[in-house]
Design a protein around this nucleic acid. Structure first.
Length: 857
RNA sequence: GCCCGCUUGGCGGAACAGGUAGACGCAACGGACUUAAAAUCCGUAGCCCGCAAGGGCGUGCCGGUUCGAGUCCGGCAGCGGGCACCA
């Protein structure tokens, strides 16, 4: 029995595709373009299964679009700056650049073995000065336009990685990479003014129709727009005013206290003369921000003794507290408490004995008896006890109250955002240097563009913690470009998310030298038509890129707002976990089933505890190395397994049985074509249009139906459904034993359709089969996608179900499009139907033509 | 706590737009070939009753709309995810 020689075959076709430069793209305005992109990898050293799944999906789309006649751009590169390179330097003494480029070389070879239709001529690495030079130039342009600024602020400091983190990189109070509890520090930092686009970044989400709703929702929540009002409360008995942001100006008459954040300037001022308050504030600031701590922390306040006047009635005076639950970096850092209609304010009021005054009356509630118990009322209703607001609903009340505040000069309508500006300064070596110079006399001076790139020095010392750039003997010492006095380079580098915020644009013109990319190339290729990657970037990378694209447009580099027209987020790869008796994680390769079916260790047959199926991770050791699979079964087997069965957005459980199944099918397909190919007429021999007999007609119908369905499923990225349809077709071809020349020609027709349609998924095998079918002159990758003939999509007859009282009782075959009377008569005549009717006359017969007949008795 | 999603055989999953639930696979079982095993091929298979013909039940649970509900509506449960003192 013949076995598919995958190793030689895969190597052969990869070499031919490369030699013929099949996948190198060139802009061609006369042709429609299609830009397919997978999120580029960090060069950690080895590819993992998640990469393989990601790139396989992208490759199917790229190859499909290519066959459909699009001018396809499908590039690949390396997100090459980042901390692991520095950690390697510290631990192994290897230079970050050496480590990174060695990893790239290794991973490039691993990736090539997957056989993706990538344009390697556009390969980029973000740590290349030829790349980050443009990033520095763009930064200077953005600085000039006010899209970048520097300010001293409280930052999230990761004590393990010794660097600042963006808000988006702090998860549950811990650094996203190190897992260390984040500290607060005050530092001077560079910020991208992402908030300048907050409104647009939010509203444009509605237009991203080819993005998952889930991602759009996550971004909406992250941007966190709240509309309300800023209200000024005058202090009693002293100068000054407290500004408060509220989304509920309608409930102002329910106010019973004012609360300040512990780090509010007024809190600090008062603390200077009040030791007890100073202690309270210190205690609040010490409290962590982790989830557990917030959960357990109770609402606590400190009465400052100060009072404020109510903006609508100076007679009403409200006490001012400092409270631990008020955040300085949201709104104004101060709130007014309305206990009746806010749960948190209610908890606080109950604890400190403040009055609870309901001012929104729920529908059907009696104003005389309505009271607030343990829960605040946050729903809609009619305002009452609120003078000029009485009788209004909540929405109208908000508008009316805001108008009144504006009329009195005590406030105005305002929108606040959860979104903060993006802090990009990192105190690390292996990143893009921020191209500015600090001069004692001139302040911050941009590095003149002709001096770019500001390159990282190669001779750095990792023997001590902290930023090696900072203590480099010479690098940071430069003369001020403006006044010539001795000055100091910025030693912080960019957050690596800056590099990934524009790499998709660099691919349009990866070798441009004067500009990051030419306007023409960007105008032709962008936006990315289909972007594929993990859901973990739903906020970070995808939001930064949307911002950065707008910022580049503002600086005149291109004319685009949204970089990714279509987004697909793939599921993760999971695998069963194993532990030994001592509780140590075991690799899948270290365990095996014994004769009784129990899991035991390969070495020593020791008992193994089989655990849950979880995301493949190094820490749980439940990973499978893609290279091992590709060497043992071939890339096509790995690709087919990943595309079969599991819908791409869902998690995929990696199993040996599943891989075996894919491997068996690869061989089955190979044998099918090998066996049939000897009896086929030469390529190009058409099968007759008619007279194929019943079997032949059915096969041709199935071919055309499969073409129509597979095309549509692949276009919607439903790879698992496409695989199922193609397996059905190949089952049908297997069952079809051609005898006449016409049937042999039909077999060729069917096999060719099958091979072409499987091409994007298992490219090496199908390229070989295409050759086996006698196509010497044209590669499969240059063969157009088949088009279904509508004439063969419908049969003359249809088999429909007949129901009696909604239960299926029979199947009847009817001419397609036959009339209701005939369908009804045929249905009622069926013996099984008559039996089910039990002699009763039909009360009603529902006929849905070509679909179903339902007899109601 | 708030918001979102999901729940179909032993397992992964199909089912366009309310119209034959379980396609296509994985695992399993029976058989053929083989000294044997692997590979391959043929066959069985939602569950229950039945030799069969056939019948009953069945898409997390309860209810509703409809000639007809996995699909629509209301309620509940479980699982997963996002956000979180956000005023």
């Amino acid at each position: 029995m013949s076995r598919y020689p995958f190793r030689a075959t895969e190597a052969k076709w990869q070499k031919i595709w490369q030699e013929r430069r099949c996948f190198e793209a060139a802009a061609d305005p006369s042709r429609p373009k299609y830009y397919v992109l997978e999120m580029f990898p960090y060069p950690s050293g080895r590819i993992h299964m998640g990469h393989v799944r990601n790139y396989t999906m992208g490759d199917v789309v790229a190859r499909l679009k290519r066959a459909q006649g699009f001018n396809v751009l499908h590039p690949m590169g390396w997100d090459a700056f980042g901390l692991p390179a520095e950690n390697a330097a510290i631990q192994k003494g290897v230079h970050p650049a050496t480590w990174t480029y060695a990893n790239i070389a290794e991973m490039r070879e691993q990736m090539k073995a997957i056989g993706c239709s990538l344009d390697w001529s556009r390969e980029i690495a973000t740590c290349d000065p030829a790349y980050y030079k443009h990033e520095q130039a763009m930064f200077l342009d953005m600085l000039e336009r006010g899209l970048v600024y520097r300010k001293e602020s409280w930052v999230n400091w990761d004590p393990v990685d010794q660097t600042v983190l963006a808000n988006e990189q702090v998860i549950d109070g811990r650094g996203w990479r190190s897992g260390a509890l984040v500290e607060r520090r005050k530092l001077s930092q560079w910020f991208f003014r992402i908030t300048a686009f907050a409104e647009e970044l939010l509203s444009a989400l509605d237009r991203l129709e080819r993005w998952p709703e889930k991602v759009r929702l996550m971004q909406r929540n992250w941007i966190g727009k709240s509309t309300g009002a800023r209200v000024r409360f005058d202090l009693v008995g002293r100068e000054g005013v407290i500004e408060v942001f509220t989304t509920r100006p309608d409930t102002l008459f329910g106010a019973s206290f004012i609360a300040l954040a512990p780090d509010h300037p007024l809190s600090a001022e008062l603390a200077r003369r009040d030791a007890a308050l100073a202690d309270f504030i210190a205690e609040c600031l010490r409290g962590g921000t982790s989830e557990a701590e917030i959960e357990t922390q109770e609402k606590r306040g400190f009465d400052t003794g100060l009072h404020c006047r109510h903006p609508f009635d100076p007679e009403i005076e409200l006490p001012v507290y400092v409270a631990n639950f008020v955040l300085m970096d949201y709104g104004t850092g101060a709130i007014f408490g309305c206990p009746a209609h806010d749960q948190r304010d209610l908890d606080f009021a109950r604890k400190y004995g403040r009055p609870v005054i309901p001012v929104v009356l729920p529908p059907d509630a009696d104003p005389a008896t309505f009271t607030i118990g343990a829960e605040a009322y946050v729903g809609d209703g009619r305002l009452y006890r609120s003078r000029f607001l009485d009788g209004l609903d909540v929405e109208s009340g908000k508008r009316r109250a805001t108008e009144e505040l504006e009329r009195l000069g005590r406030g105005q309508g305002e929108t606040t955002w959860r979104l903060r500006d993006w802090g990009v300064s990192r105190q690390r070596y292996w990143g893009c240097p921020i191209p500015v110079i600090h001069c004692e006399r001139c302040g911050i001076v941009p590095v003149p563009k002709e001096q770019l790139p500001v390159e990282l020095p190669h001779d750095v010392d990792f023997s001590r913690p902290g930023n090696p750039l900072d203590r480099h003997p010479t690098w940071k010492h430069v003369d001020c470009p403006r006044c010539g006095a001795p000055a100091r380079r910025e030693t912080d580098t960019f957050d690596t998310f800056v590099e990934s915020s524009w790499y998709f644009a660099r691919f349009c013109d990866a070798h441009a030298t004067e500009l990051p990319f030419t306007r023409e190339a960007a105008a032709y290729w962008l936006p990315v038509d289909q972007y594929i990657g993990g859901i973990e970037h739903a906020v970070l990378h995808l939001l930064y890129s949307r911002f950065y694209t707008r910022a580049m447009s503002a600086c005149g580099y291109l004319d685009l707002d949204e970089p990714f027209a279509g987004l697909f987020t793939q599921g993760m790869i999971t695998h069963q976990t194993f532990k030994d008796e001592a509780g140590n994680w075991l690799e899948p390769a270290e365990v095996v089933r014994d004769s009784a079916g129990n899991w035991v260790t390969v070495r020593g047959q020791r008992p193994v505890i089989a655990g849950r199926v979880e995301k493949m991770s190094k820490s749980k050791r439940n990973t499978v190395d893609p290279t091992t699979i590709i060497e043992g079964y071939g890339a096509d087997t790995a690709r087919l397994f990943m595309l079969s069965d599991s819908p791409p957005e869902r998690d995929l459980e990696w199993t040996d049985a599943g891989v075996d199944g894919a491997w068996r099918y690869i061989n089955r397909l190979w044998r099918l074509v090998e066996e049939r190919s000897t009896q086929l007429p030469p390529p190009g021999t058409p099968a007759p249009a008619a007279g194929l007999g019943e079997k032949g007609t059915a096969l041709r119908r199935q071919v055309h139906k499969t073409i129509a369905q597979v095309t549509s499923e692949l276009e919607r990225l439903h790879f698992n459904k496409a695989v199922a349809l193609l397996r059905e077709l190949s089952n049908a071809i297997e069952a079809f034993a051609p005898e006449t020349p016409a049937e042999q020609a039909l077999t060729r027709e069917a096999l060719e359709a099958l091979v072409v349609m499987f091409g994007p998924m298992i490219p090496h095998l199908t390229e070989e089969l295409w050759r086996l079918l006698g196509h010497e002159d044209r590669l499969l990758v240059d063969t157009p996608w088949p088009v279904a003939d509508p004439a063969w999509l419908v049969a003359d007859t249809v088999t429909i179900a007949v129901q009696v009282n909604g239960k299926r009782r029979a199947e009847i075959e009817l001419p397609r499009g036959c009339g209701r009377e005939e369908a009804e008569a045929r249905a009622l005549a069926d013996p099984a139907v008559q039996r089910a009717m039990d002699g009763k006359p039909p009360r009603r017969v529902v006929v849905v033509p070509d679909k179903i007949v339902n007899v109601v008795v």
